[in-house]
Design a protein around this nucleic acid. Structure first.
Lengths: 234, 234
DNA sequence: TGTACATCAGTGAACGCGCGTTCACTGATGTAC
DNA sequence: TGTACATCAGTGAACGCGCGTTCACTGATGTAC
């Protein structure tokens, strides 16, 4: 009865739950999220369909749980990459690895939204955690003056046009920073983090959806050029 | 019988076809592409389900046609924006408008791929047309020395790290340019166009999927800062 | 202008299918005394 | 250690549903002479 000591039944339960989820992921990888079927999962596991209702409230509950897990695993991946101290480009590479590992998992979180569905509320917290990690790494590189951090500003300075809209964004972000929580990052770091984030998704979503196949070039070379920071030194 | 003169029957046919597609789009907007149902469309139109088989080979054929149309409409939008002479940022704004007009249309082309499905072959040509337009506008800005074009290079120059991987990408692109067809754009323009393209999709896919809602800032301000070229002058 | 025929849009019934979900029930596992 | 009971995993039958698709058929529209 001590906290953390699971009874045999509880252990069995969570084991079966995990197995159900594993099959669900396999199915999603094969047929997409819209093709996920409780009956098919049950069949895979050698059980009858209704048996799954002992473990999940229904199809929607199961999907919700998968979404939650996907968010969690990305947040963990990000956290580990940040701890590894490989900087922004390390974060980028980790995310790409995570995405390529199971493209449909990426799409379950960042892909086409199904009009009726709303992600579980607690994913907001995980999403914030991800952004916080990104901000941490961004701020660290900024503080260290690591090459790459100055990119957006340097680009603006180079423009004849001047950084009018860039400044506007930084001002705006300084005033609308829910997503950054109480992170102490200065406006230009907020902006840098946000830009990095969106660019990352640009390359990844196109690559994962197969829009680079048939174009001829190697996505990895593009990725490296777009997101390397330190690796290009020499 | 003169070419281009459609018989009443032919006109009626294409009119009904168009109406079917219109309802299909409505349904996709409401329930997503996976929720598209022939019977529901027929009901909407006050006909019986099997009647649709006079106009389309089946559900897959209809979807294929919608994908084709979506590609076409984006290519046209791009073409018009290029003709308007508003430069790269004009292209960006046009694409965002197009995307916001019907997010599910965007997702039908660039969203989560459904594992089994392959887009019709002729969409490749349209996709190339889109890239060609992008390259045209990119090359024009480059030739005119318009501010903004130098962004990526300026950023690299500013880096202590040096543009090693950027050069690598340009070399690579110069040697793998199927996607660019026989467009005479030099490597740094190829790279610039590709980067612009991926960044565009980054912001748009996140915005359309709703990942900015709840973050606090205004997506439009981000968009402007990321893609304006001339508009920020002054 | 009128008749005979071909074309073709649309119907209604029917097909098999797989889905999520409910329900009453069986049988094994764990718990309390 | 043994018995009585409660818990709970899993089954099998059944529900209603909407789907894509086929088929034989009706009736209107267009064409040929």
């Amino acid at each position: 009865m001590a906290a953390g000591a699971a009874s045999p039944r509880e252990r069995y339960r969570s084991q079966v739950r995990a197995e159900i989820k594993a099959r669900a992921w396999e199915q999603i990888a094969t047929a997409g999220a819209s093709g996920l079927s409780l009956n098919a999962i049950a069949k895979d596991l050698g059980m009858s369909g209704p048996a799954l209702y002992r473990y999940f409230g229904g199809r929607d509950d199961l999907i919700t749980e998968l979404v939650r897990d996907a968010y969690r695993s990305l947040a963990d991946t990000f956290g580990a990459a940040a701890d590894a101290g490989t900087g922004l480009s390390g974060l980028a590479r980790a995310m790409r690895r995570w995405a390529l590992e199971d493209p449909q998992r990426y799409f379950l979180v960042y892909g086409t939204p199904v009009p009726g569905y709303r992600a579980p509320d607690d994913t907001t917290a995980t999403a914030r955690e991800i952004m916080a990690t990104l901000l941490d790494v961004c701020a660290a590189e900024d503080a260290a003056g690591t090459p790459g951090t100055a990119e957006t500003d340097a680009a603006d300075a180079e423009r004849g046009a001047g950084p009018a809209s860039a400044d506007a964004l930084e001002t705006h972000l300084a005033e609308h920073r829910q997503w950054a929580g109480d992170h102490p990052a200065p406006p230009h770091v907020l902006r840098r983090a946000l830009a990095y984030w969106t660019r990352l998704h640009g390359v990844l979503s196109l690559e994962l959806a197969g829009h680079f196949t048939g174009m001829g070039f190697d996505p990895e070379v593009l990725f490296t050029a777009e997101f390397e920071g330190l690796t290009g030194t020499g």
